[in-house]
Nucleic acid binder design. Sequence first.
RNA 1: GCCGAAGUGGCGGAAUGGCAGACGCGACGGUCUCAAAAACCGUUGGGGGCAAACCCCGUGUGGGUUCGACUCCCACCUUCGGCACCA
Length: 994
Amino acid sequence: MSDYSAERKPMDRYDPAAIEKKWRDRWAADEIYRTHPADERPKYYILDFYPYPSGDGLSVGHCRNYVPTDVIARYYRMKGYNVLHPMGWDAFGLPAENAAIKLKTNPAILIRRFADNYKRQMNMIGVSYDWSREISSSTPEYYHWTQWIFLRLYNSWYDPRVDQARPIETLEDELSQNGTANLRLPLSEPQLTAAEWNAFDPLQRQEYLRRFRLAYRGEAAVNWDPVDKTVIANEEVDADRRAWRSGALVERKILKQWFFRITAYADRLDRDLDTVDWPSKIVTMQRNWIGRSEGAEVIFHTEQDDEIIVFTTRPDTLWGATFMVLAPEHPLVAKITGEEQRAEVTAYVARAQATSAAARTEEKEKTGVFTGGYAINPVNGARIPIWIADYVLMGYGTGAIMAVPAHDERDFAFALKFGLPIIPVIARPDDAARSVVRAGTYRPELVAALNAAQYSFTENAGDLLVTLTGAQAPEYAELVHAHLTEGHSEVAGSGWLMIFPDEVIALDSVAADERIAARLRKEIGHDAVPTCMAYLVTTPFYRDIVYHDNYGTPIHSGPINGLPGDQAIHQTIAWLEQNGFGRQRLNYKMRDWLISRQRYWGTPIPIIHAEDGLEVPLHDDELPLTLPNVESYEPTATGESPLTLIDDWVNVTLPDGRKGRRETDTMGTFACSSWYYMRFADAHNSAALADVQELAYWLPVDMYVGGAEHAVMHLLYSRFWTKLLYDLNVIAFFEPFARLRNQGLIMAPAREVNGEVIVEKMSKSKGNVITPDEVVAEHGADALRGYECFISDFELSVPWSTQGVPGVRRWLDRVWRIVLRPDDDAGQPATLSERQVQRIVHQTIQRVEENILNFKFNTMVSALMEFTNALYKARDAGLVGTPAWNEAIETLLLLIAPVAPHIAEELWERTARPYSIHQQRWPVADPELAAEEEIEVVLQVNGKVRDKLVVPAEADEEQLRELAMTSDRVQSFIGGKPIRKVIVVPGKLVNVVI
RNA sequence: GCCGAAGUGGCGGAAUGGCAGACGCGACGGUCUCAAAAACCGUUGGGGGCAAACCCCGUGUGGGUUCGACUCCCACCUUCGGCACCA
């Protein structure tokens, strides 16, 4: 201990440990953060992504989320808003269950313990949540309503005619009256007449309705996680086919699973992204995930008159479809396969099925086999071969494509590999063409003739390499033709002509291609030339020009030749529709949301499977269906949920006497998190998911803040559930989160290894986690909060710096001293007027407020530090105790209250102001008091600063120009040269250009 | 491969068409001390110049627009995120 501190009572120094707990206890006892129900005040709902409590507790990285949002919540409270700033727990799911298995403890007890620790840490850092609204998704009071929403999904279908969900009974009525005639189903869906529907027995009806229910049980190839022993959603599998949580390589299995039909909402999920204020990165990721594409379904007839329906985004290239490809799993494969090809096709299909999707996509080399079948291209009657190949996926579109090798990269590679014809049907937008006239095939006069006609070409060992345009092709071909003595030349890229000494053939159809290839084979003397294009690609000069996939003007395409690209598409679709060969269709990459988990610790699915095979949904008044207590939480060896082992829970007798078994899959936790933000509006309602009035008042969430790792799954699912409940009139908003922001990651402190700087994520296994507990113990919660804000731009990832917190701590020390003991030390004498102090006060209010609203918490802290520095200068100027000084001190405390609530409250009390600072009104900035009277204007010559001038703020252009010209320094740089121009920006600068 | 974001002192970063480097860290010098720590006061982009005045250079690279560019446009390089045979 130094003499300096020994002279003083301990509490005269800033000692966070001595004040922070005291105030937190007082705030909690007084419930100053309790949110009131809907009232006449404006509301502000600011929400953090609710966390999954783990046994490890919070790190300083988690606090990056919670502190800034707390600053915002505190700011809006001081602005007079009714603020909802709640917290809850995403409590179901595998980590808790796995921990329960390991520790042989009930997961409910474990999760409560973990959550309590999170809560302790959140309180420790002074976050102002209203704990009276705390929720936990694994309590029956909560999952009651998760199940209730499940039943809404189960009992609804999506009516595309009104573009919204409706009760399933309305579909049953429709089917019994009109069948599917008016439903505008995709052509690839099974259609039904009313008579057929009415003749169905209950089981058949159930099977048919599965195709429509928004929650349905279906057989599907699913992602099986062998480590967690459960099925997981597509969204939970990454590009390397690894499970998002366990990291295990997922396996493909065919199982009966529960799905939510999120695809029904694909278009609205895409469209409504226009209505939210979210980071553009997240909006883009969602759009890419949804993968909307406009195009057409086209019906091809096989020679046996089966219909093969394809989806294409390029109906304008239909004339270039020279073969078809089916996915190996396509239902028509067996039927169209010829006897000669059957063995090979069967073997290929078997191999494709055995190969995981991962391996299939890893192999870039195309594989496939010919089925022996042919189809007729509806637009030109061409007979085209049908192949199967694993690059066509059964899960997208219709599982069949028309291959247009000239304008689709995959089809191009496939056609070259298997010798299939490639006919260009879209002109290159640049109309670029090239030609090679080979040495020894032409008369020498050709060179002069090309020069005379002004073609641009180079000569290389006797080969003439000509660059031209498609428009010049006919004239050029004539010229070359006249000088060609043997062999051949050609125009490639645009124009597409094959030039022989005796004829010129256009590459405009499969028939022409065959003639050309036959001539080339004869000329070369063996069979290595299956098609014209296969020959052209062997010439390096053509490499960059033979293929393109741009939109452009059709060629070789009969009636649509020459139309602009977008018109060509529309006209082709119109023609297909008129002639019954297809129609317009939207298609989406997104698949339905797989919700089944074969695990214990999740929301039970409220469905009973009756002995006659019918599904019986529970009634609303039978909810909640609670989880039974079990002895063991281990997944069973068969991969079924451990719930299957609880006979007295699983086996039930229905009111009508039928026996049944409960569904034993549980819901994945994304179901719970898809609606929790609504529950906070009225967290303990036992009669509804929340009171209608409270929902109407509080929702949507005004500001939602969390990590970008939930960009797709959680946010997409939440939007889907919101739209469903909107359609069913449960809620009146259709987007849940008006504004969204993602905080950057806090990494472990950078360390140097062999001169290289290493920045890693914090992880328990690496032992580099920094906890808020250790930081608070050393420097206090306010210093931690300040540094969380100050560390970097909110959205950027940044390594933690152990030096950073002491820096903020020093600032708080300076605040402490300037408020309580301004006269203790003195710096160098300074000049500052009361008016100047007042100006700084009001400028700082403006800056801090603006920074909070724009999520610029780092510059908010900077502004407060500068303000503090200015007060030290004011002290050195002898202003302590003046009215301006007193206003400045009071303003300082109010402005730091959101970021440093404890020290603000302590100093507020010590300066004899009324409890609590957190219930005071935010100071109002007066623009007039903030305005500068004098400003410094920069004088430039040719853009370089040469002098500076202090002038009245209102000095006009003319005055500034004159002042600039009288500057000696400006004049010396002009040096008597003529002045070309003088730029005057009032309030900023004068630039003299010479 | 495609889509998106970011490249500024020794470090985190500020400035969104007008004085580049606010604020903080670190470093250096000083005050206090027997000494050290803490605290306080000051200096701190690079080069030239005398530690002055002053001059030149400088925001990933190369071009462009402009009186003026970290900021806008074009091309490229690097890093990070996302997607990836989606017809």
